[in-house]
Amino acid sequence: MSPVLQGLVTIVIGVASCVAYFFFSNMILDKVLFPPRGENAGRNINRANQWRPWLFMFPAMFVLGLYLVYPVVGSFWRSLFNRSGDEFVGLGNYAILFNSPEFQTAVFNNILWLIFVPAASTFLGLLAAQLTDDLKWGNIAKSLIFMPMAISFVGASLIWKFVYANDFDIGLINAIRGLFGAEEPIDLMQVPFWNNFFLMVILIWIQTGFAMVILSAALRGIPEETVEAAIIDGANPFQVFFKIKVPQVMSTIMVVWTTITVLVLKIFDIVYTMTGGNFGTEILPSYMMTFMFRDDGRATAVAIVIMVLTLPVLWWNIHNARKEMR
């Protein structure tokens, strides 16, 4: 069967079986298990209502449990075994990792990414949100800055490959250098240390739009009286922005910051397409992919390290969500 046909059949079967599951399980609950009739009618209604939420949630909980909760345990367990998975090595994979120079480079670079990308994206996003807010054509500007969000990381990398190309006639950066009298084009992907930042620019280019959209909504939500009062008191536009507006959207800034932080820990595409992790640009997600299909023990060990790095954000998010629900 051709994959296209298989896809269509899957859609039909998938949707139909979802509908059937919800419809029939609900009917069985109401009509068969706890019918609202007879002497126990009242009690049955209550019991049906106790069961129903779990009925509604079961498919979602099942896939979540299987595909996201189980792997946390499964990956950790697998990371305790050797390459082929038949010999228990304890924390051996971790020991090898922590002693390998590539892993140390990856961690170091990843820390650079974690500091630089969220900070720059959030800052630029805030700036763009504030600047476009007052303009008549602000919405068009916003939509253009937001556009890279739709582009895949692979596509974005290719786009920037043209900007960084090692050629006066292809690479924009080298063309500009040539304008200022550079003799030879340089390969920006091979400039030690700074090449990391050139790669980060790609992710910043993508994520600034996201930050801008959210912060722009937050800025609009600021009560106007606070701004008016500040202006009447003689605050200049910069003071209004930094002392009145920014403090009021601080919680949104944190949300944006943490969202991008988590994203940074998941993205391997950019490094993979631009440098393949060479020239000292390896980061943890791409480092993990070098072991994928080759050494599951070490691949999962790297995955667990990534997981541990996300824990603070995870805790912070849950903490916030709970606070909000109370």
């Binding site: 988590v262 990534i306 998010n317 969500a321």
Partner: peptide, 18 residues
């Protein structure tokens, strides 16, 4: 709900091998 919020963050790299 808190668990869902937590799962939003779990890196899917963990899921690949298992």
């Amino acid at each position: 709900i808190a668990a869902i919020v937590g799962l939003l963050v779990v890196p899917l790299q963990l899921a690949l091998v298992p």
